[in-house]
Nucleic acid binder design. Structure first.
Lengths: 152, 152
DNA sequence: CTAAATACGGACTATTCCAGTCGGATATTT
DNA sequence: AAATATCCGACTGGAATAGTCCGTATTTAG
């Protein structure tokens, strides 16, 4: 449980792929799908959605495809996940405005909301660049240091 | 997305309820379910599972029910969630031993694994006691300070 | 100008997972 | 013996996810 959807995974993988091939002006959905062995049509729809939210730029026609709309360092994992899966709630009961229907108190919700914020914070601190520039062997010095302080 | 199951929510709520009523030797599943308006039979199964994993102690018969097996401060939210929902994986592809089937690389997985660990860390730092000792009005000074440092 | 390659997008199907129910067995107290 | 509990396996309904199909629009190559 507490899983990302496969679509979000696919989206992250695709952006990583694009970040790793900055020389190419665009990569088609099919190319990316083939590279990872994921269903092409499904990935296509994901990329379309990422285009609609402005993370990608698309170009139809031959040699068309998708490209990052910004530098990979400027795109966070959170943005990708949010674009694909929608808002991120850890509790089942957190609904838009009406809150929890459970009678007295879902007091649980309040502390878990902080956990939620923490997760969001962490995901925001990870950029697509971070995902890409990792050769399997270069496992050593990780640069950035994200510090999350949660008071409770 | 990235949601806890309702069962986990219910489990946390139930333990919180038990922590708030330390005077009673035991609370029946039905009592707790009624207190929150959640399905009694469903909660019963959840409590049974928590008993099997050792977080609760049960007692059949009249005036029977469930009680915390340890001090509320010694039970983490993570333990509860893990007992109910099983191991906590943020990525869809993390399977027991075989890892990811996707051909080349699910390089995504490695950075996300750290996110995973962070979440687990936060959940481990929250005890049932933390959930319970919160009167709706006492919204002021939160005591404990959990500090999560993640390097990436 | 035509054909190929590509993005776009709605509708549909399949499958999995979660939530909740049912029925019956066992244990304990009164 | 009866009432109150826990215990546990099996089943069902529904929602959400994963994936497919098919037609349209756009751009480039030849």
């Amino acid at each position: 449980m507490l899983k990302l959807t496969k679509k979000a995974d696919y989206g992250l993988m695709a952006l990583k792929y694009l970040a790793e091939h900055p020389e190419c002006p665009a990569q088609s959905a099919k190319d990316i799908a083939d590279a990872y062995g994921i269903p092409a049509q499904l990935l296509a729809k994901i990329l379309q959605r990422l285009t609609k939210t402005g993370l990608l730029r698309s170009h139809a026609g031959m040699n068309g495809g998708y490209a990052l709309s910004r530098d990979a360092r400027q795109i966070s994992a959170f943005e990708v996940i949010h674009a694909i899966d929608g808002p991120l709630f850890i509790t089942s009961c957190t609904k838009g405005a009406k809150g929890c229907e459970l009678t007295t108190n879902c007091t649980i919700k309040e502390p878990l909301a902080r956990v939620n914020e923490t997760i969001v914070g962490v995901l925001k601190s990870i950029s697509i660049y971070d995902l890409a520039e990792r050769e399997p062997n270069a496992h050593a010095a990780p640069p950035a240091q994200a510090l999350v302080t949660l008071t409770m």
